[in-house]
Design a protein around this nucleic acid. Structure first.
Length: 555
RNA sequence: GUCCCUGUAGUUCAAUGGAUAGAACAUCAGCCUUCUAAGCUGAAUAUCUAGGUUCGAUUCCUAGCGGGGACACCA
């Protein structure tokens, strides 16, 4: 928090907007900088004069001058050097006093918002595309809470798509007990023999009628799918406040469709029911098939209504779905608007996951399954772990590696900017160095190990004035930036900014670790350094939490 | 064809319109009787093209070229 406060203090004194502050490219130039280009133009004052004027004003202000070691005018920049004592004392007391909600702010004013994500299809297997969605959504909820919102994670399971009928058909042919494979196989069979479409259509009709052998099979296969979902949620430690099912919404959805037909929002065309949105430049959205079965949008309409009932005073409803469905949501929101819905729905698009050889597709079976990827990472971790810790028993190794594997999976998905396609490369994911969860967790474990060996207790007396090294100052400055990062990540809805911060912070710490020995330091300085390291560990743990990553004591 | 995203090092990614364009991996050269070497240090390598706006453009605008995606019965 402190950096933001310092900027605010300077801003108030100089009567400038704090958004123009920047950071110098390297620490020799200063800790905070103020570019004066536009200000000098605005105020029609020469840059040098302005710099000197600002500098004088701050240095002559007794409430401000003790914050800075020096202030330098460097060309068109005014560079501020923070006083070390001030920086260490402010930063560390902030961290120690706000252990559980580091970086939190009240920007959200406790407004109620929903994040709807993990809108997976049953009757298909969960692949790394779903993983990105789940992990991304989970992190957004956590980040928005840190920004003061009252956020709820919600999931809408698509258990009624035409894919379910296809899977049921293949399952009946005794093709496989594996429903994911059933789906891919049915698609290729239908490609070969288009007459099967009629048969699939009959199955779909039966499923919607909730009656008959096909409906029973649908229920059975759906349960198999849901069991798999639950297992994966529990592995990833993902929890939903509410889970909605498409199959519970079609009945009400059909009533809404009738209503919208009467109102003229929908119309019949070529035997189907559509929303014609050409006049808004949004094309046409088919809502009900010509065989009378429902398309995705039907349930969406009923869900919108349900959210209204379940979440009174809802400020915003984010729907986290990948960018390929942008048009669909523009169409849906337009329809809701035309029907007079007031809720603020926002499609939070992120880019999808593809493989080096091209798109993933459940239809063709060209996917990397989450389970398979997890197993590969897990097995490799086990191998490495056993090498390093011959004294650990199997249970400890397994436990540790499972947590690590989950952390690695999550981080791989979150470290790439939300609007960037992830080109998923399995070899890279299996490389446990560089920009990875393992690197960060390893750094954290190093901190914890030192604290353990030193029998660290927070209650000891210490004086931070003894901290003098440049690298310690760099780290403290980075800590002081954390609140700004949490805020900005919340604004951008992009967890990759936290991921990058974590990595940069860990790198700085590893540099420190290499350069300075803590355990063998003289006692008073050692006490100061231990409290410093403890603060670093709290910060890392807190930032990891925002990505949904659990920290570890040992690796 | 229309619309959306995107183009930075060999590869994968960074860079609120600001100072010398950062990392990671891979490559090469070093560092463990010392707090976990899954670590650290060093070397080498990049803004698609052409205009424009600006004191200043990787960033904004226009055009072109390249990549990806969406566009009526998939979700």
């Amino acid at each position: 928090m402190i950096l933001k406060e310092i900027k605010q203090l300077i801003g108030k004194k100089l009567k400038i907007n704090i958004d123009i502050f920047a950071y110098p490219p390297n620490s020799e130039m200063g800790d905070i900088s103020l570019p004066l280009f536009s200000l000098s133009k605005e105020r029609k004052i020469n840059v040098q004069e302005l710099a000197n004027d600002f500098r004088e004003k701050i240095l002559n202000d007794n409430e401000l001058n003790f914050i800075f070691e020096k202030i330098e005018a460097s060309g068109p920049y005014l560079n501020f050097f923070l006083d070390k004592k001030f920086l260490f004392n402010e930063t560390i007391s902030y961290v120690l006093n706000n252990k559980n909600d580091l970086g939190y702010n009240q920007d959200g004013q406790n407004q109620k918002i929903i994040f709807e994500y993990s809108n997976a299809n049953t009757h298909k297997e969960i692949h790394i595309g779903h993983l990105r969605n789940i992990v991304f959504g989970d992190s957004l909820v956590k980040i928005s809470k840190a920004n003061g919102f009252d956020s709820y994670p919600v999931s809408f399971i698509n258990d009624l798509g035409i894919n379910t009928a296809k899977t049921v058909w293949a399952y009946k042919q005794n093709y496989s007990q594996n429903i994911g494979q059933c789906y891919a196989w049915s698609v290729s069979e239908i490609d070969k023999n288009p007459d099967l479409k009629e048969e699939i259509s009959q199955i779909m009709i039966e499923i919607e009628k909730e009656d008959g052998e096909n409906y029973d099979l649908w229920k059975k296969t759906r349960d198999l799918s849901m069991k798999e979902f639950e297992d994966i949620y529990s592995l990833l430690d993902i929890n939903f406040y509410k889970t909605y099912f498409e199959s519970d919404f079609t009945k009400r959805g059909v009533e809404i469709v009738d209503d919208f037909l009467k109102k003229g929002i929908f119309k019949k065309s070529q035997g189907a029911i559509i929303a014609d949105l050409e006049e808004y430049g949004l094309g046409v959205l088919p809502v009900v098939r010509s065989d009378g079965t429902s398309l995705y949008a039907v349930a969406d309409l009923a869900l919108a209504e349900k959210k209204d009932q379940d979440f009174p005073d809802l400020k915003k409803s984010f729907i986290v779905v990948d960018v390929r469905q942008s048009l669909h949501f523009k169409q849906l929101f337009k329809i809701l608007e035309l029907a007079g819905y007031k809720n603020d729905f926002t499609h939070l698009a992120y880019d999808f996951v593809k493989l080096p050889e091209g798109m993933m597709s459940s239809r063709s079976g060209k996917v990397v399954l989450l389970k398979d990827l997890f197993d590969q990472i897990f097995d490799k971790l086990i191998l490495e772990s056993k090498k390093r810790h011959e004294d650990w028993d199997d249970k400890k190794i397994k436990n540790n590696c499972q947590k690590l594997a989950v952390a690695i999976l999550k981080f791989e998905m979150l470290k790439v900017g939300a609007n960037k396609t992830i080109t998923f490369n399995i070899e890279e994911a299996l490389r446990f160095d560089g920009y990875s969860a393992l690197y960060i967790l390893y750094t954290l474990v190093r901190m914890k190990s030192i604290l353990r060996k030193a029998d660290f207790a927070e209650s000891v007396e210490y004086s931070l004035d003894l901290l003098q090294s440049d690298i310690e100052k760099k780290i403290a400055l980075e800590m002081a930036k954390y609140s700004d990062i949490v805020y900005k990540t919340g604004q951008d809805n992009d967890p990759s900014e936290i991921a990058k911060y974590l990595f940069d912070f860990a790198k700085l710490f590893n540099d420190y670790y290499q350069k300075i020995n803590i355990l063998q330091t003289e006692d008073n300085l050692k006490k100061a350094r231990l409290i410093f390291i403890y603060s670093c560990s709290l910060l890392l743990e807190n930032a990891l939490k925002l990505l949904g990553i659990e920290s570890l004591e040992e690796i």
